[in-house]
Amino acid sequence: MTLSLDEIKRYSRQLVLPDFGSRQQARLKNAKVMVTGAGGLGCPISVYLTLSGVGRIDIVDMDEVDLTNLNRQFLYGPDDVGKPKVKIAARRLTEINPEIEVNPIVEKITYDNAFDLIKGYDAVVDGTDNFPVRYAVNDACAVNRTPLFHGAVLMYEGRAMSIIPKETACFRCVFPDAPPAGMVPTCREAGVVGSMTGIIGSIQALEAVRYLAGLDIGLKDRILILNTDTMTFDKVNVKRREDCSACGDVFIKKPVDEVCEVRSQ
């Protein structure tokens, strides 16, 4: 796939990077990516994928814009309250970059539909906000062998990790089971500021873009841990588990109890 003159100009600031050229840009243009969640993480993720020139972006979320979203979800304004997030997001992203295709999917991801929903993508970037959906996305990506770019936030803490199924540790290799309800607070209970989801979502998008462009990525078998109250950035090493129920030799369905579910905020 070749690039038009407009595209060459639009992407010129990244095309001058020494390791990034028209071949890498064409790879992005050919890529089909799913963004799960159009909230605090989903906004920066989808904006940076859009700006970078990922050719096809599908965004899944069933929620409508709420006034409490507006401290961090910068694709929406007060006029959008009550409207489906993904529709607003898709329209805005297409305005930002008309060269690409953005496809809104108003759907609730569940353990039952994740495996079909997340099929045929070159990568999934996860911006969901609760354990049942995160485990569903992880397991579906493991089974379908779709690279998954994970990120999560809680107050001033953020995490990011890149998963190449069967090659690097998946979310379930690291956390085989979800914590019991009430152990880990949600953003709604504990709070979150916009720059926090901005930082983590941007890191996820960057990892995805580098991966799709064919460049090396730094968060394979590693979790980046950011504590922005102390500005400590740590990377810890993780390993695949042979007996992982998601990416191990034998796949075992393990839906996470909806009891600890929270709606996207």
Partner: peptide
């Protein structure tokens, strides 16, 4: 020593 429970916010 770093202690890391799973978190899920987004």
């Amino acid at each position: 020593i770093s202690i890391l429970p799973a978190v899920s916010g987004g």
